[in-house]
Design a protein around this nucleic acid. Structure first.
Lengths: 348, 348
DNA sequence: ATGAAAGCGCTAACAA
DNA sequence: TTGTTAGCGCTTTCAT
């Protein structure tokens, strides 16, 4: 066992005391320039590598934060995690990764044992309110969830309602007046997007319908099949996400409708599939990478400051909404100049 | 500052010594049943939570492993990381996440400071050979790379050559004899897939061509445009990945070729886009989640055993190849029963 | 500006 | 079986 080199060895080599070496190494406190140099040099020569565990013991600062993901499979998280990783690194913090679905509360437990300096929750964690152990005043920021699941946690998320409004504005700008929304009710993103859709539709006095669908291609296809067969048929469909929109695309093909000549189509998330040239789906880019970075910065600030305000249950915790960006592609165009059909006998 | 409860508090409450409490808590060594029970109960009542840093100091075991990703954005890694996370958790290890591109060698440094028990490298890390600090006998496993970048590291990866062979066998089984491969030369996966393609093509005595393309849709489109205009035109195209295959799909459309009637198309990676019903791209599923899990198990074993054999430079390190699975969809079909065109005057 | 010394919370070798 | 006693490597008062 090669004894690893400790700060003691460095101090000895530099001819100073242990504490002087400690101070010099971290650049804290008062050390004469000469000694500092000597220490640094000695450390270099010896290949000294501080022991994080020991440092954590002494200083009560681990330099670690917990990164708890709702579900790694959700592609939305990837850029968010990337931004997070970036932002945390910039703040000198290292993320300990875990999957909530897989590891559940044991993960949180482990984070507490490691004395993490903060926690990042990504997505909405099923049952987190009950399952999470008491966190005390530990700083927590939650990314990509509609509301905080931990009292006092800061929330950073994309403004899904605004993204939906932008889609509607884009479509009305093209001249559409009958727009259908394929929704994913019951999920926080789904509901936010629907709310934005309906709000803007109302404001514009549109003939708008919302139909429940889901997040998968098949769900989008079935719902679209229904709505595209109804009278009067909408001239545009805005789906809750790209997958559902692509399902709607299949439905349009099945019904012999051309996109965008007969039907405009928009999705959400700006996935790679939307960007395919054969698809060219107008979509909304979440900028979730930015969300991750902002969240990291926020957490670092909370850590540097005084932790989470013990305020508790109030909904007053900071919520940061990030603006999404509309990506206009070839799937949206002005509506066909349809001859208005004779009104179906409605009141007769 | 609420002093946190230590093992001393637990011991006192249970009326035993510090070490008895320690042993009881971990279930190691000899403790009478009565005392063990008392300790566990006391810990429970006090809400005792062991301090990982302190434990690490005493036992020289941190319970942490470094998880260094080449690039989080690469979608291939997501399932791999998931499997890794799962497998590590099963082994009682927690992954510390980092992005090689973003943080580079500083990340490895940080891992060493934390005294991680092992390292997982995901993907091929640019310049890792020079940039990584000396790792000593630290167990390392590398996932998804063609070869180990650290001497003696275990390698777990998908068998890309085998996947390519399976695609070729599928196509020849359908009756194709002229197949083009859109390659991504210079990358380890690209080269492995090309090698598998060429090997199987040779074995089957095919009329095969390999053209350099790339991993993007546009690269695939351009390369396909070229190869589909050549004479004799191939009846099937196998692209290095789904994106390139989808580019080839665009190219086919541009040239008025129907898929699969006039042209069969296959990709690799089984991405969500390939699964779209409007696309139905035959592809290869890497099972990289499994790769992650296997890698985690392997690392746990190395940690439990005697670390990485100091053997060093030899290529003898274990390499585990995982079999991919062919996903046949609607983009591949028997070749058109073409009338053989008059040979273009070649030797004239 | 510098050094001595007292922990931090836990494990492990030892003695009883 | 159980309790005592050293450390582990670093930070941080507190004197000097």
């Amino acid at each position: 066992m090669a004894k690893s080199v400790t700060i003691l060895d460095v101090a000895a080599r530099a001819g100073v005391s242990k504490s002087a070496a400690s101070l010099a190494l971290r650049g804290t406190g008062y050390v004469s320039e000469a000694r500092r140099r000597a220490v640094l040099e000695a450390a270099e020569e010896l290949g000294y590598r501080p022991n994080a565990a020991a440092r954590a013991m002494g200083s009560a600062r681990s330099g670690i934060v917990g990164l708890i993901l709702d579900d790694l499979r959700n592609p939305w998280y990837v850029p968010a995690v990337e931004g997070l990783s970036d932002g945390l690194h910039a703040a000198g913090l290292s993320p300990l990764l875990g999957d909530w679905r897989l590891e559940g509360a044991a993960l949180a437990e482990r984070c507490l044992e490691l004395r993490v300096e903060g926690l990042v929750l990504v997505g909405t964690l099923d049952g987190a309110e009950e399952l999470l152990p008491p966190l005390g005043p530990l700083p927590v920021v939650q990314v990509g969830a509609a509301r905080a699941q931990v009292p006092g946690a800061a929330v950073v998320t994309n403004d899904d309602a605004e993204g939906a409004r932008r889609v509607v504005r884009h479509l009305t700008g093209l001249g559409h007046t009958r727009i259908a929304h394929l929704a994913d009710p019951g999920t926080s993103v789904g509901d936010a997007r629907r709310a934005g859709f309906e709000e803007e539709a109302r404001r514009a006095g549109l003939d708008a319908v919302t139909v429940p669908a889901g997040r998968t291609e098949e769900a989008g296809r079935l719902a679209a099949l229904g709505v595209l067969r109804s009278e009067p048929r909408p001239t545009a469909v805005f789906a809750v996400n790209d997958m559902a929109a692509l399902g709607a695309l299949s439905a349009a093909e099945e019904l012999g409708l051309r996109v965008p000549e007969d039907l405009s189509l928009a999705g959400y998330d700006d996935t790679p599939a939307a960007r395919l040239r054969a698809v060219g789906l107008t979509s909304v880019d979440n900028a979730s990478r930015e969300a991750g970075r902002v969240a990291a910065a926020l957490l670092a600030e909370m850590i540097a400051g005084h932790g989470r305000p013990p305020g508790g249950a109030g909904p007053g915790a900071a919520a940061t909404l990030l603006n999404p960006e509309l990506k206009v592609r070839t799937s949206t165009a002005p509506p066909p100049a349809v001859v208005r059909r004779a009104r179906p006998a409605q009141a007769g």
